[in-house]
Simulated assay, not measured.
Amino acid sequence: MTRIAVLGGHGKTGRAVCAALTQRSAQEVPLGRADWADLPGALAGCDAAYLIAPNLHPDEPEYVADALIALAEAGVGRVVYHSVASPYVPAMPHHLGKAVSEDLVRRSGLVWTVLQPGAYLQNLDLSGPVVRVPYDVDAPFGLLDLADLGAAAARVLTEDGHAGATYELASRQTTVRELAAEAGLTAERVEDPGEHPWLSAMFAYYDRHGLPVGTQPLAGLLR
């Protein structure tokens, strides 16, 4: 049975990937912060790894570099890196961290694939009656369902033909207003809560440009 490590496997992204790996009869090995004390040991016997950095990590390139070293030491020759759609956006610092990390992955000497997911559908509260977001509700987005992400990641991890590929991932193209209307709800832009400066920068970018992502790469992976 193929054995696949999921670094960051206990978060919502990691759980979606692990669930999809199980459906493909692969053995998932979810790893978290406690495993970093001996990451090469935790990775022993794995055939591949899905690499997710903690959300808003203050130094994602360092985190990714350490993970890549551990993968090489453990003899795991294949890595799929969880990046983001439009990684090189100077206005969004955490996107830039992923752009630098992508470069590290590509130069790691491992067999690599990069996934660039759009914003998650599950990040929107559709419980009603009003969907509130701190950016323009008419901004264009390529939104990604977590189940689709998991299915795409599992396929890339368990099948040949994806080495050296970079895939943008979105389940659908829409706006928050359109998505709310489909659920019989209204949408409203609210003030940025200011919880983190990187999030504020992201919301300001979304307000001006949204985050468009094409749907065809995901459709191809899920065929």
Rank of each mutant, 00 (worst) to 15 (best):
W198T: 12
L144S: 10
L39G: 08
L110N: 06
A153L: 02
Q173S: 15
A183H: 06
L104C: 12
Y135L: 14
D136F: 05
A5N: 05
G214A: 15
A65C: 11
L56D: 05
G97P: 08
L143I: 10
S171R: 06
G194P: 03
A53R: 10
P61Y: 02
V80Q: 06
P30A: 10
A19C: 07
P140R: 05
H57Y: 08
P117T: 06
T166I: 14
V64R: 08
V137W: 01
T186Q: 01
D103R: 14
V114E: 05
V137D: 05
D103A: 12
E178Q: 10
T2M: 14
P40E: 03
A37N: 14
D138T: 15
R155L: 01
A20S: 12
F141R: 13
K98V: 03
P217L: 12
P93V: 04
M1H: 06
A170C: 04
A53P: 02
E188P: 07
E195T: 15
V190P: 04
G142Q: 04
L43A: 13
E178S: 11
Y167N: 08
P134C: 13
A49P: 01
G109H: 02
L96T: 11
L96K: 10
H94D: 08
T2V: 15
S83G: 11
A180H: 00
L121Q: 12
Q116Y: 00
V130P: 00
L199N: 15
G194C: 09
M202W: 04
L221I: 04
L71W: 01
A72Y: 00
S171L: 07
P30V: 06
A67G: 06
A37V: 15
A139V: 00
G32K: 07
A219M: 13
P61A: 11
E73C: 15
V137F: 01
G32T: 06
A53T: 08
G11R: 07
P30L: 11
H57L: 15
V100N: 01
L43N: 00
H10M: 08
A180S: 03
P87L: 13
A5R: 03
V213G: 09
E188K: 09
H57W: 04
A67H: 01
G14F: 00
F141C: 13
V6A: 04
L110K: 08
I52H: 07
S25D: 13
F141K: 14
K12E: 14
R189V: 05
T166K: 02
G128F: 02
K98H: 08
G118Q: 02
A183S: 11
E188A: 10
V100L: 14
T13H: 11
G45P: 01
V79C: 05
D145Q: 12
G75C: 12
L71K: 09
L56M: 11
G210L: 09
L211G: 13
L104Y: 02
R15Y: 00
C18G: 03
P129D: 05
P134V: 07
D103Q: 15
